[in-house]
């Protein structure tokens, strides 16, 4: 059975001022799949993932053509960008908790979207922290500053924060690159678990990570999507020579 597309990218081109960072990207990102973006540094993975929730809007001189559809609706058309970002959550490469308590970090999103009831907030915070597999570690220190957590805990807190507004999609830009192997393993496990309820797009430099967790892999080079398909297939019989060189570590 063919999967439903969460995102459809049609002829996406993107420029930073006069530098073209993405060239004619066409791809379908299936719902409830984990899609991995791989490729050498500077090939445009972050740029593309940030296009999916329009974080690129914040960058001066950034221009995009073509179209990106989310559930068959253009994200550039008649859509409230804040609502788009509520639906398409994001976890950043460097953990970026707000300098406030653990509780307030997770409650910020729901509060932003108008939830005031203390009871409801407590519920959301607990559920999000549980879903992000960090509840047991922080349940006794919800009032403590989030900055007092370890890097791995901070990143899971950021995942909890992203989950708190009940998104459909979770974008993760190298979420484990700043973490130790144990924290990384925890987050990978978590990502696989989240797949049932969310569509996940993850950027990674770690080939093992891509094979371990993702269903689909896209290989990028110099702003182009060189190869895209089932993860096992990409890693066993890559069609493109450059892709093969990259995943076998002979690239360069």
């Amino acid at each position: 059975m063919e999967k439903v597309s969460k995102f459809s990218l049609k002829d996406v081109n993107l420029w930073y001022s006069d530098f073209q960072a993405l060239k004619n990207i066409n791809m379908e990102i299936p719902a409830n799949f984990i899609t991995a973006f791989i490729g050498p540094s500077g090939c445009g993975k972050s740029t593309l993932i940030k296009s999916l929730n329009r974080m690129n809007d914040l960058i001066e001189g950034c221009r995009i053509t073509g179209d990106i559809l989310l559930d068959n609706e253009s994200i550039h058309g008649n859509i409230d960008v804040n609502m788009l970002r509520k639906r398409v959550g994001m976890v950043f490469q460097k953990p970026n908790p707000f300098p406030m308590s653990v509780f307030d970090n997770v409650a910020y999103g729901p509060r932003t979207h108008g939830i005031k009831s203390k009871f409801r907030l407590n519920e959301i915070v607990e559920k999000s922290l549980c879903d992000a597999a960090i509840w047991d570690e922080v349940k006794d220190r919800l009032k403590k500053s989030a900055l007092s957590l370890s890097g791995g805990q901070q990143q899971r807190l950021c995942i909890a924060r992203a989950l708190s507004v009940q998104p459909d999609v979770l974008l993760m830009d190298e979420p484990t690159s700043a973490l130790d192997p144990i924290s990384t393993a925890k987050i990978e496990e978590l990502v696989i678990k989240l797949k049932d309820s969310y569509t996940i797009v993850i950027v990674t430099h770690n080939m093992q990570q891509a094979t371990r967790i993702s269903d689909r892999t896209g290989f990028f080079l110099l702003g182009e999507l060189v190869e895209y398909g089932k993860t096992e297939r990409i890693f066993s019989v890559p069609k493109d020579k450059r892709c093969e060189d990259y995943i076998t570590g002979r690239f360069g």
Binding site: R85, K86, F92, N96, F98, P99, Y108, H113, S164
Partner: peptide, 27 residues
């Protein structure tokens, strides 16, 4: 206040004003 903190707030769907007054200013 680091830009990542602002990005974190905006990525949750907060408006510029909300992120500024509820996250950046407290930070």
């Amino acid at each position: 206040v680091p830009g990542e903190i602002y990005d974190g707030a905006v990525a949750l769907g907060a408006s510029h004003e909300h992120a500024t007054f509820r996250v950046i200013l407290p930070a």
